[in-house]
């Protein structure tokens, strides 16, 4: 599992070094936090302590992420939710991306902040906890409802709408990142002396095409 970004740890996506450039122990630490957070087994206090630890271990030139519009709870909820939707979207900067757009677009922001309030309210109704503090099973219970249009009821409608938006934006954040571009297999944007389709691709087409 990749690292969800947390506001106090990571610089904005564009200036963020590649994951492989970060010291291995820090990566491991972040991974552990992410895993613990996703499993719901990390108390807020423990998380805060680890965060301080990570901050101290950070290379001095790294600039802490400064929230632009979202509050820390919203930012972290988006980071965690995006990571659940598209594994890797957290590390790919979904939360800073949404924070940036939200800071410039009140209507866009409202759809996210309203969605988070809906999600937290739903979790509170069901489990007396926030989405962030809910267990993995509890989160799945809610998400498995709002991740599908077929579950639409008046009560779940706003959640389904929000999840549809969060899914598209998380996917955008991931598949426009370096990692996502690589994962999907885009190999272009080069300067070539000649355009040519590789023989293995033509062989594949010849083998599978019915015409």
């Amino acid at each position: 599992m990749s690292d969800p970004i947390r506001p106090e740890e990571i610089a904005p996506a564009a200036s963020q070094p590649e994951a492989s450039a970060a010291p291995a122990h820090r990566r491991d630490l972040l991974r552990a936090i992410a895993a613990a957070a996703l499993a719901g087994s990390l108390s807020e206090e423990a998380a805060a302590q680890v965060h301080q630890h990570v901050a101290a271990a950070k290379p001095s030139q790294a600039v802490p992420y400064k929230l632009k519009f979202l509050n820390a709870h919203e930012f972290e909820t988006i980071a965690v939710l995006s990571e659940i939707i598209i594994p890797g979207a957290g590390a790919a900067g979904a939360a800073p991306f949404i924070d940036l757009l939200s800071s410039n677009n009140p209507e866009f922001a409202a759809r996210f902040t309203g969605g988070i309030l809906w999600l937290d309210h739903e979790c509170d109704q069901r489990f007396q906890t926030s989405f962030l503090a809910a267990s993995a099973a509890q989160r799945a219970e809610v998400l498995d409802l709002i991740a599908y249009r077929k579950n639409r009821t008046p009560a779940l409608g706003p959640g389904i709408e929000f999840f549809d938006l969060a899914r598209r934006i998380a996917s955008d954040a991931y598949f426009t990142s370096r990692e996502g571009v690589k994962a999907i297999g885009f190999m272009g944007n080069a300067a070539l002396p000649e355009f040519k389709v590789p023989q293995e691709v033509l062989d594949y087409v010849n083998k599978h095409s019915p015409v």
């Binding site: 659940i84 939707i85 598209i86 594994p87 890797g88 998400l143 991740a147 599908y148 249009r149 549809d164 899914r167 598209r168 996917s171 955008d172 991931y174 598949f175 426009t176 996502g180 571009v181 994962a183 999907i184 297999g185 885009f186 190999m187 272009g188 944007n189």
Partner: peptide, 24 residues
């Protein structure tokens, strides 16, 4: 295989729904 840009995967998101590794 065009360059992935915002919106490139929205059709897939809508078609498949769900989330997680399976959706990815």
């Amino acid at each position: 295989y065009g360059m992935p840009t915002v919106g490139s995967t929205h059709g897939s998101c809508r078609r498949h729904e769900g989330y997680g590794e399976e959706l990815k």
